[in-house]
Design a protein around this nucleic acid. Structure first.
Lengths: 112, 112
DNA sequence: TCTGATGCATAAAAAACTTATGTATATTTA
DNA sequence: TAAATATACATAAGTTTTTTATGCATCAGA
């Protein structure tokens, strides 16, 4: 669906950081926010999103709160303490990744 | 092996760009160059490297030249014309990815 | 002479994601 | 008011990509 596969491996980083910023969000909301921020470039599909949220919860990085809105269910996720720590790690990893990729594709940046 | 999985999906971009810069390289040399530039952060393992080189060749992005060095074989790869075009695309994709990731993880960068 | 580096390769397994499908409620539009 | 679209969750099958594990062979240095 997305034209590039560069996002593979970065979905957890995105989710953790958004939860870090917005305190609590539900799955559908996260997907919308990602589309909005990337202006449609990245579509976080349900097939990737929901299993990943479940996985992060199992890993103890997220807590869930189920809320009924009318006849519909929403599951709000928020960071645990471990989740907050992991967010810091993930962001550092991302910066390192970007730096390394810049060095790889931009020869001029190698001497920095 | 690598601590982060952010590199997933960016190996082709790396290989194409290095071949674009160095004109021709063989597999082992590419792996060494990547380790050197990233100061050991990224280890392009053989299991990922060689099948990918084969795939890029099948896709018509690379040409191969087999050279005997003493009793040992080296396979030099270089970009085809299509490969050069694809390199441009991949680099544009990478810039877009980085921009989007920055917008996602750095709220302040969203208004730019 | 043996260890590590050079240089290629592939196969099995795991990981991550896509695609497809399913269920159900709420809202908008023709 | 019926139909289409949006909201909101979920999972299963399949694909792609990468990891891990082997394997083979040459060459250089201690």
């Amino acid at each position: 669906m997305n034209k590039t596969n560069l996002y593979k491996g970065s979905l957890a980083t995105i989710i953790l950081k958004l939860l870090n910023e917005y305190d609590k969000m539900y799955g559908y909301e996260i997907a919308q926010k990602v589309r909005e921020i990337t202006k449609g470039d990245l579509k976080l599909t349900e097939g990737a999103l929901y299993p990943l949220l479940h996985k992060l919860k199992v890993q103890g990085l997220l807590d869930v709160e189920v809320v009924k809105i009318g006849g519909r269910v929403r599951k709000y996720y928020k960071l645990t303490e471990a989740g907050t720590k992991e967010t810091v790690n993930k962001l550092a990893e991302l910066e390192r990744y970007i730096k390394n990729m810049r060095a790889l594709v931009n020869p001029r940046s190698r001497d920095s």
